[in-house]
Write a protein that binds this DNA or RNA. Structure first.
Length: 879
DNA sequence: CTAGGGTTAG
């Protein structure tokens, strides 16, 4: 015969080990032997522990007169099994039956408190019944207040004078601080606890490790780790997991793995923490290996594991594995988890399967901010800009309780920039202001980028200035905007300001600065930036390296560009395109094409920009047949669709070569509306090949397409002049006067040392004007002796021949070259830049001058470079 | 027989 004590402890044991069969067997035995009434409370507790609240309720209902222990056990059965509303109902029933409140029921009912109002009522009850003196009750109140974000109220309970404190009180307080993002305070409480002589247990350790992680206090974290090892709590799975999490977040994956290895029974959380660490620190393959190791050890991945692993799949390009995981999740009914959905959307988007990403998104019953962001970013990245805007508007309409954040706005701004949709950019701007994101550097960058691409550099500058951003990222965006909008000088000024503020330039700033130098053709400044790159050891940076190639080419030094190109540690399609484009601009068409074939030999796939450079090389070298070959075969050979730019270039090539009929045929058959570049090319061709009919048509189109441009009138007048149609020419000139169109003043500039010297025609403002004109007169004599005859046809001024000759000889580029001659050592190359096309007469003159002074003269005009050496030009008079 | 504190993902 069993004694009552043994039956009670047997039920407790079965409950603890959740031995349902053994307990149920004992239950029927008690029923048969009529002993049930004596053990109802034991049975209640047993079923509660076996997670069978309904069975517990059935036992309870058979109790004729439940005591406070029966009631408390019932409340516990509901509360511990995820039925807080029933627990509250049971608690209220207990009170309704007049059963006195007790120190067992209060903590558990506090755990079920639906809101802080209810919690405060229980608090008042505890005060009224003096149960507040019970340490269990105060500890529960600390947890309750902490859970509702009232951590200071929790601290008041913790500090209750005369109140008892035990380990749970300390741990609860630390936890309350951690939950409320007050990790530094949590670490403080832990220190106080150690100092007071209370020995931390696994609960305290795990909490404080989390506090260290949250406050990124790795120093204390490592110290706590030491204590954990000394006290043997590194075997506790919760504490060890917190440590793995800490080292994972810190990025010390090796240490995380060391802690992980020593866990006697690593659970799925341990694995998840380590895998997450691998993923966030770029060890995608290691994360995938860990996933494969879990299965043989019998640890089943859960949604946490999968959401991390999906990110690893996307990062490692293991898209097939990712799809398998998706299939597995559908079978396991785990595909409606929001975190997993984010991983799936992100993975499909990175794989370029936006439709699959969209399906996952649409399937979700609820969508949070991060999920919206994942799809919007994916679409934006994939160039589906229209879809981005419609998603954004749908999100704002549907997700009334959703706010947006910097990620949303940055992605949307990327799309408004690509679409040049200024009104959408303004809307985002207003929204950013409303939610206080105008000082966020992501948003500021997006706005700057979007505004300048929408043609409003002024707004971009305003955003930058009002953001008061001192950070290097926003400054880089601003510099890029300035240099792209032909405000290279301001970009350089901004860089100098950054240096003054003590900001250390990174490779991005320097690359942007190089582009500014390129747009200014500032060779000397470009070399200085190169020196910065060397000094800061960014020479192996791919972006900076490509920018160097591009800049040197744009600044007129194809030799430096070639050296920078050779020095690139790895050459991507951008590097090759930059070099090919550079050679093309300098008239080295054959070398450009050779380089293109070397690129193909090395297995680098060209893109549409490469092909533009290739066509441009053919153009500058007059290689019409080669151009035709590339133009016609690019789709089949390289899978590249012909863009508007390719067509414009091809039409230019045909036009220059005098194949005006072929050019017009291409214009009529191309899948685009002819743009200004196309008509400009045709107008130029009509002048060279004396086709005034075509010239008139092209010019008329240009007058409507870009009425602000003055060059059209000039070219048309020149076309009539070249065909000897003087009356028509006079009409155009009259039209120019009447319509108040001003010719853009021709300007040339030259960089001597650190200073840029600018000249206009007949300029007399330079301090060394006398010497400059003296030099020109001296050269004039030598040129005349060598056989130079001024080509006055190019001048359209209504003056006589000798005045025209005088005007020609004082063109801005001549003044710049003369100044360079008198202020640089003999033999040094001369680099001059001009804002318009170089004039035909100056082109002839510089051939003479280069021979007379034995110097290389490099003129960059609006189209290309002209290298004059020993009486010839690199363009072969074909430009 | 009944009560309080801890871990992982986008």
């Amino acid at each position: 015969m069993r004694t009552p004590g043994t039956i009670g402890s047997a039920l407790a044991r079965f409950g603890a080990s959740r031995s349902l069969l053994a307990g149920a067997h004992l239950h029927s035995h008690l029923l048969k032997s009529g002993l049930l009434a004596s053990y109802s409370n034991h049975l209640l507790s047993f079923y509660s522990r076996c997670r069978l609240p309904s069975a517990a309720r059935a036992v309870f209902d058979e109790i004729p007169d439940p005591c406070h222990v029966s009631w408390s056990s019932l409340v516990t059965a509901y509360s511990n099994n995820g039925m807080p509303r029933d627990a509250l109902w049971a608690f209220r029933s207990m009170r309704g039956r007049g059963v006195p409140c007790n120190e067992y029921a209060l903590p558990i009912v506090l755990k079920c408190a639906p809101d802080v109002r209810f919690g405060a009522q229980v608090h008042a009850l505890a005060v009224a019944t003096r149960l507040i003196q019970d340490v269990f009750v105060t500890n529960a109140l600390v947890a309750m207040y902490g859970g509702f974000g009232m951590v200071d109220e929790a601290k008041r309970m913790f500090d209750e004078p005369g109140g008892e404190r035990n380990a749970v009180s300390w741990n609860g307080m630390i936890s309350a601080y951690v939950k409320n993002d007050r990790c530094r305070d949590a670490v403080g409480v832990f220190r106080e606890m150690v100092w007071s002589g209370e020995r931390p247990n696994e609960f305290g350790f795990s909490c404080v490790v989390n506090a260290c992680t949250g406050s990124r206090d790795w120093e204390t974290g490592r110290q706590v780790h030491g204590m954990v090892v000394r006290t043997g709590y590194d075997k506790d799975v919760f504490t060890a997991n917190a440590l793995v999490d800490m080292y994972s977040k810190l990025g010390d994956i090796e240490m995380a793995a060391v802690v992980f290895e020593k866990i006697p029974a690593a659970d799925v959380v341990s694995w998840n923490a380590l895998i997450a660490g691998c993923v966030t620190h770029g060890h995608d393959h290691r994360a995938l290996e860990l996933l494969l190791q879990m299965k043989p050890l019998g640890v089943v991945p859960n949604v946490f594991t999968l959401s991390s692993v999906l990110k690893a799949c996307a990062g490692a390009g293991a898209f097939n594995l990712g799809r398998q995981i998706h299939g597995f999740m559908i079978k396991a009914d785990a595909d409606s988890d929001e975190f997993v959905a984010v991983g799936l959307v992100d993975m499909y988007a990175k794989d370029g399967f936006l439709d699959d990403a969209r399906k996952v998104f649409d399937f979700m019953p609820r969508r949070d901010l991060i999920l919206w962001n994942a799809l919007i970013s994916g679409c934006s990245h994939d160039g589906r800009h229209g879809e981005v805007l419609s998603l954004f508007h749908r999100m704002r309409k549907e997700g009334l309780d959703l706010d947006v954040n910097r990620t949303t706005l940055a992605a949307v701004l990327k799309s408004t920039a690509s679409l040049e949709a200024i009104c959408h950019t303004k809307q985002v701007h207003a929204l950013a202001e409303k939610i206080g994101l105008l000082s966020d550097s992501h948003v500021v960058n997006g706005l700057i980028d979007s505004y300048w691409k929408c043609g409003r550099l002024d707004y971009a500058i305003k955003v930058f200035e009002e953001s008061c951003s001192d950070d290097i990222i926003s400054s880089t965006s601003m510099m890029t905007a300035l240099s792209q909008c032909d405000h290279g000088e301001d970009a350089i000024k901004l860089f100098v300001q950054m240096l003054r503020k003590g900001l250390e330039p990174d490779s991005f700033v320097l690359s942007s600065l190089l582009n500014a130098c390129a747009s200014l053709s500032a060779y000397e400044q470009g070399k200085q930036v190169h020196a910065h790159l060397i000094k800061r050891q960014f020479t192996s940076d791919v972006f900076a390296g490509n920018a160097l190639v591009y800049t040197y080419a744009k600044c007129g030094s194809i030799e430096d560009a070639d050296m920078a190109f050779s020095g690139l540690p790895e050459k991507g399609v951008v590097s090759w395109s930059a070099m090919i484009g550079g050679l093309a601009q300098h008239g080295h068409g054959k070398r450009a094409l050779e380089l293109f074939h070397r690129m193909l030999d090395e297995g680098v796939a060209p893109n549409n920009i490469t092909l533009t450079s290739v066509l441009s090389a053919c153009n500058h070298a007059g290689l019409v047949d080669d151009a035709k070959k590339y133009f016609e075969s690019m789709k089949e050979a390289f899978g590249i669709d012909r863009t508007e730019e390719h067509y414009a270039c091809m039409i230019d090539i045909l036009g220059r070569a005098g194949k005006l009929k072929d050019a017009m045929e291409l214009v009529n058959n191309m899948p685009f509306q002819a743009n200004a570049a196309v008509w400009g090319a045709l107008l130029g061709a009509s002048r060279v090949h004396r086709d005034p009919e075509l010239g008139r048509m092209a010019a008329e189109k240009l007058f409507t397409l870009e009425p602000e441009k003055s060059g059209t009138h000039v070219l048309l007048a020149n076309t009539y002049a070249s065909a000897g149609m003087w009356d028509e020419m006079a009409k155009v000139r009259k039209l120019m006067k009447d319509s108040n169109v001003k010719k853009e003043p021709a300007m040339s500039w030259v960089e001597i040392k650190d200073k840029v010297h600018t000249f206009i025609v007949g300029d007399k403002s330079h301090p060394r004007t006398r010497e400059i004109y003296g030099k020109l007169a001296e050269l004039g004599d030598l040129m005349n002796k060598a056989g130079y005859v001024p080509n006055v046809e190019v001048d359209l001024h209504d003056v006589d021949r000798s005045q025209k000759e005088l005007l020609l000889s004082h063109h801005s580029e001549r003044l710049a070259v003369a100044f360079a001659l008198i202020s640089t050592p003999s033999g040094a190359p001369i680099r001059v830049k001009k804002n318009l096309r170089i004039c035909r007469d100056c082109h002839v003159a510089f051939k003479f001058i280069s021979k007379i002074v034995s110097r290389e003269i490099i003129i960059r005009d609006i189209n290309r470079f002209h290298h004059f050496t020993d009486g010839t030009c690199s363009c072969g008079d074909y430009w």
